[in-house]
């Protein structure tokens, strides 16, 4: 066990963690934020994407200890039910989600994608979301959502 201190959604979290505790388990089990999901065991599905110091990371590929001193943002930290993030709004308005399980990771990946490319083309969006699997939507409306989200974010 080791001490880890980091910020999650702006709040300082000091905890004892196992040396092999994954960041995603730390977020879900220790911090208790269950919006970050686990959909696979090979870092392929992207359901666990969070931002670590502004960069999107699959939280199952990182140890909690590696995030020492970092600022972690999860789906719970980007907007609220009263005021959604523009990308969350865009997913709602364009029916970019069905079962909702891949959605948090998809939204976090989309926000990072748009932060790097303010007005991505359809091909760039499809390429940029290659690391996030959705089984429900066929991606059609996710692509539309990200385009709309990019516009809302000022692209």
């Amino acid at each position: 066990m080791a001490e880890v201190s980091l910020k999650v959604n702006g709040k300082v979290e000091n905890h004892e963690v196992g040396e092999n505790t994954l960041l995603v388990d730390f977020i879900r089990e220790t911090v208790g934020l269950t919006g970050t999901h686990v959909g696979c065991d090979t870092s392929q599905c992207g359901a666990c994407v969070v931002h670590v110091d502004g960069v999107s990371v699959k939280a199952c590929t990182m140890l909690a200890m590696q995030a020492e001193g970092s600022e972690v943002t999860t789906i719970e930290g980007i907007g609220s039910s009263e005021k959604l993030h523009p990308m969350q709004e865009a997913f709602h308005e364009n029916h970019g989600l069905q079962c909702g399980f891949c959605t948090p990771g998809m939204v976090m990946s989309a926000i990072e994608l748009v932060s790097k490319n303010k007005s991505p083309s359809e091909a760039e969006i499809r390429d940029g979301l290659e690391g996030n699997i959705c089984r429900c939507t066929g991606y059609h409306n996710i692509v539309k959502s990200v385009q709309a989200g990019a516009e809302k974010m000022g692209g």
Binding site: L33, E76, S81, L97, G100, T103, P104
Partner: peptide
């Protein structure tokens, strides 16, 4: 149902 899923509250 969207809001709860979009905000991680599912």
């Amino acid at each position: 149902e969207d809001k709860k899923f979009l905000t991680g509250k599912g």
